[in-house]
Every structure is written in C-alpha cells, then in structure tokens.
Amino acid sequence: MPRVSQQQTDQNRIAIEKASARLFREKGLHGVSVAEVMAAAGLTHGGFYGHFSSKDGLAAVACANAFAHSSARWDQRFTELPEREDRRRAYVEGYLATATRDRPGSSCTAAALAGDVARTDADAPVRAAYLDGVKSMVARLASVQPDAGSPAAEQRALADVATLVGALLLSRATKGDPISEALLASARARLLQEGLAP
C-alpha cells in the first residue's frame, strides 16, 4: 500500500479538525463519535489514531481551532470598523442574531460547548482550550468598550460575555417559542444601551 504524502497527511488532519469543530458545536462533545467525525471529514475511521491519540485530544484541538477561527473572522470584520462603538455594536448584533442561534455548528464555541465543558474533569484538555477561548472573548469585548484599557472596561466585558453566551444558550433552548426571539432582542437592547459612551 503506498504511503500517504506529508501534504496529504496535513490536509487530512485539517479536514478532521474542521469536521470535528463543526460537529462538536452542533451536537456536543459527547454526541459525536470518532467514526462520525471521520466520515464527515471524508476519511475512514481507522485513520483517526494516526492524527490524534484520543477523542479528548481532538476535542481540545477542535475547541481551540473554533475559537481561533471566530477570532480571525472578528479581526477581519473589525478592520472595516475603526470606531470602538461600531465594533461593539457589530459584535453584539452579530452574536445575538437569529442566524447565529440557528447555526450552532458555525457559531460561538463558548455557547455551544459550555454545558459539556462544565461536566468534564478539571484536567481534561478541552477545559484549557475552552478557558483560553473565553478569555480571548473577554479581551476582545474589553477592547471595544468606550474606556478600553481600564479595569472598569474589563468588568463590563465580563458581564457582556456572560450576557451574550447566556442569552444565546437560552434562546437555543427555547427555540420555537416567542420567548426565544425576545431573549435575543432584550439582551441586544440592554447591551447596546449599556455600551454607549459616558
């Protein structure tokens, strides 16, 4: 059997990471099997252990990559918006949109994996990746506060992240009832009102 080139090996790993990031956000860490990830990546189940030692290791990599992908998207979006207030508004409106609620596989990792990560062991690799991702979200939101760089801005950013993630989670859990849209709308209104420059 011919050996797979290093380039093909690298492409396979990227395909596994992308498929797992989407599936873990859609179905949770425990709702996806290794076989399902590999099938979604267009690969056979047997090839998994040539890339990862365990599903736990893959979960950590997928979590970190999903947060990094989101950060890169926001970095790109922010280059188009020079003002902090516009950046914060875009973040809040984009995060608390119906489309974000309805596409968990391509949206916020913090919301998609919060419950699963909370139930993992303290030393699970995915916990460290998740923590880094949440800290990155806080830093991003602190940077778009009117008084960015101050301790008060970081405190508001912590509250913003908690409100954003909580509202998105509740909206997903109540989808199909009018309260789902109301949760998104009320959180948006509160955050945008609180984000106005003093």
Rank of each mutant, 00 (worst) to 15 (best):
Q6C: 12
Q7C: 02
T9E: 13
Q11S: 06
N12Y: 00
E17P: 00
K18I: 01
S20A: 09
L23A: 01
K27M: 05
V32G: 02
S33C: 00
A40E: 04
A41P: 03
H45Y: 10
H45R: 11
G47I: 06
G47S: 08
H51I: 04
S53D: 07
L58E: 07
L58F: 02
A59I: 03
A64V: 07
A66D: 00
A68H: 09
A68Q: 13
E80D: 15
E80I: 00
L81G: 10
E83V: 12
E83D: 15
E85L: 08
E85R: 12
R87A: 10
A90H: 04
Y91F: 09
Y91T: 05
L96R: 00
L96Y: 00
A97M: 06
A99D: 12
D102L: 11
R103S: 07
P104W: 01
G105I: 10
G105M: 03
S107D: 01
C108G: 06
T109R: 10
T109H: 02
T109A: 05
A111Q: 11
D116L: 09
D116G: 15
D123W: 08
A124N: 11
P125D: 06
P125N: 08
R127T: 14
R127M: 09
R127Q: 14
L131M: 14
D132N: 14
S136K: 07
V138Y: 03
R140W: 02
A142D: 05
P146C: 13
D147K: 03
A152Q: 15
E154H: 12
R156C: 10
L158D: 07
A159T: 00
D160S: 04
A162H: 13
T163W: 12
V165S: 10
S171Q: 10
A173T: 11
I179H: 14
L183D: 04
L184C: 05
S186W: 05
L191C: 02
L196E: 15
A197G: 15
A197P: 13
P198F: 13
P198G: 14
